[in-house]
Design a protein around this nucleic acid. Structure first.
Lengths: 335, 335
DNA sequence: AACCGCATTGGCAGCGCTGCCAAAAGGAGA
DNA sequence: TCTCCTTTTGGCAGCGCTGCCAATGCGGTT
């Protein structure tokens, strides 16, 4: 039994064929359970694979096969620092792993040029599909995605036209619903507190929807505070303090997301400001901690995992091209 | 100019060579900037690439090349629900993107068998390296990793022996330091509140270190509450309430991480328990929100991003085999 | 003017696998 | 027993690219 391979060379399908005393095609058929083969052949191959510790080379397999890799998808997300995107990935991988599909991920840091570079890099692996975030891309990105002859799914945002399939919810509608909630509760001196809008376009869309709905009831934003850098509780806390210094009469704050809102809540606790009596707080995302707060945060829950799952489903089935998964307004106790 | 390709067939290097009027090898040399070629050849190839919208096929490239893909690494993490792992990925991708290396990720859900299956799946892409989490694996996983002739880096935990390279910190030491801090501050009736230890082995190591250090000063854990499921503020809140019901006299709680601790803090706020006067809280991870709380959380900051970065550095350089990045105890105001 | 050395170039085998096709092996019916 | 059909099998081309090698061109030397 010469199980030992010359060092440096990995076991190949040919080795397995030789060891099992069958042809290469038979090994291939057995391994993929594709085509017909005898029980005896199956057993001998299985034995040889186990004995030699054979690991198929998918580079070769996909190259020889249809040309496009069936077991790889490319995913581009703008960030890993915001829980939203890991949650997306979670939904995705949960569904894809079940089918033996792997994700190659790229993080664009909200930079369209990096996104384009990543799309090119990912396409070079000939993935079965490309999953992007949002609907706004460089023309070059769109051209690449179109030319790649792969399924393209754009996640999270449905406010606009997509390249191929779109799975998400309307950020404008979320913003509008949030505004109606606050206005309906009688708040009138409302400010916005967010992180950098130039990079997070979806936060911008929410704010646009928010202001529009405010305008519909004759209100305008009292003020807005845009913090540089990513969203975080620390940023939300500092932001609310800055906002209060400028607009001491504000009675409600709409945050770009729950992390920022948590920071705002901490600021209120520290300053002894009664929530929502003195200041009402409204978030976005519906993260886990929002429900565990002493006063559950008023926010909008977004179907992050479900977006990932549906996006995965889009790849396999030729399914519908546009899925709006909606959102859920959580009344909470802070607004 | 027949730029239009027959539909279904992607542009290949041969197409580029023909369009540029040079040989295939020259195109290859130009694209990889490897070997020598004339300025004229470079320009003609660049022009043809742009005109045809050529995207190299790395499946073919890596197959033909050294055999092992130089631009792919496989990463296996146990979860995406805990911020720790996205943070790891963040550090990783930040470093790897700069070198044009892509990550293929697999999520094991803390299941060693799934981990083994993922390792096999990832190895089939012939990655340049394999990045695993923790030091405990199935024998099969270890055998696969060894046979794969790839660099293996185990991240986060340094309490034990690794397969190849190890980057992280000592969880036992963190637990011990936390215990010494609490004991030093005079807390005596200390309980532990964590999520499922059977799956999160590193949390188990912290607890072991914690109890050991307590024993060193003649103390023992007053009680422990292990919550099923993943860690979360909601779980921490419910857990602390359960713990208080059983041990109304406890004066400090060591949490399995900051998320759980945040939930505990919320429980104290809700119940009107003064922190740390009535109950002291101590976390783990040093997440962003910890510093933004009305009373900064006492916790231990772990070098998550740095672990990712160093792990990436391990891949490229043949660097040291074992890197302990330490931790930082943050005194905070809750313990 | 013949020669040498270097930079540049193209041809082609082959990476490990799959798809196609034809050959071989069984089994059923006449 | 022979023929016909179905199941099973192996050989081999080729996926798109890289590495090797030989060939070409170009200038500078003697």
């Amino acid at each position: 039994m010469d199980d030992i391979q010359p060092p440096g060379r990995l076991v190949t399908l040919t080795d397995v064929a030789r060891a099992a005393g069958v042809g290469e095609s038979t090994v291939s058929r057995v391994l993929r359970n594709h085509g017909s083969y005898s029980k005896r052949a199956g057993e001998r191959v299985a034995e040889a694979v186990a004995r030699l510790g054979y690991v198929p080379n998918r580079l070769a397999g996909n190259l020889a096969g249809s040309g496009a890799s069936a077991q790889l998808v490319g995913v581009v997300i703008p960030s890993l620092a915001n829980v939203v995107f890991p949650d997306l990935l979670r939904g995705l991988t949960a569904s894809l792993d079940a089918e033996g599909i792997q994700c190659v991920i790229g993080v664009s840091d909200y930079d369209p040029d990096r996104e384009e570079a990543l799309v090119a890099a990912l396409l070079s692996w000939r993935p079965a599909a490309l999953l992007l975030t949002g609907l706004e891309h460089n023309p070059g990105t769109v051209a690449l995605a179109r030319a790649g002859s792969v399924r393209v799914v754009e996640m999270i945002d449905t406010d606009g036209d997509g390249i191929d399939a779109v799975v998400g919810f309307s950020n404008r509608a979320v913003g509008a619903a949030s505004a109606r909630h606050l206005a309906g509760r009688g708040y009138r001196r409302i400010a916005y507190l967010g992180h950098d809008l130039a990079v997070d376009l979806r936060a911008g869309k929410r704010l646009a929807g928010f202001e529009e709905a405010l305008a519909d009831v004759g209100l305008a934003l009292l003020g807005r505070e845009i913090r540089p850098g990513p969203s975080s509780p620390a940023s939300g806390r500092a932001g609310l303090e800055a906002l209060l210094a400028r607009h001491s009469d504000l009675d409600a704050v709409y945050f770009s997301n729950d992390d920022m809102a948590l920071g705002g809540y901490f600021a209120c606790l520290s300053a002894g400001l009664v929530v929502p009596g003195r200041i009402a707080l409204f978030g976005f995302n519906g993260l886990d901690f929002a429900a565990a707060m002493p006063q559950p945060l008023s926010t909008v829950r977004t179907p992050r995992l479900e977006i990932g799952r549906q996006a995965a489903a889009c790849l396999t089935g030729g399914g519908p091209k546009r899925i709006d998964l909606g959102y859920e307004l959580i009344e909470g106790a802070t607004a």
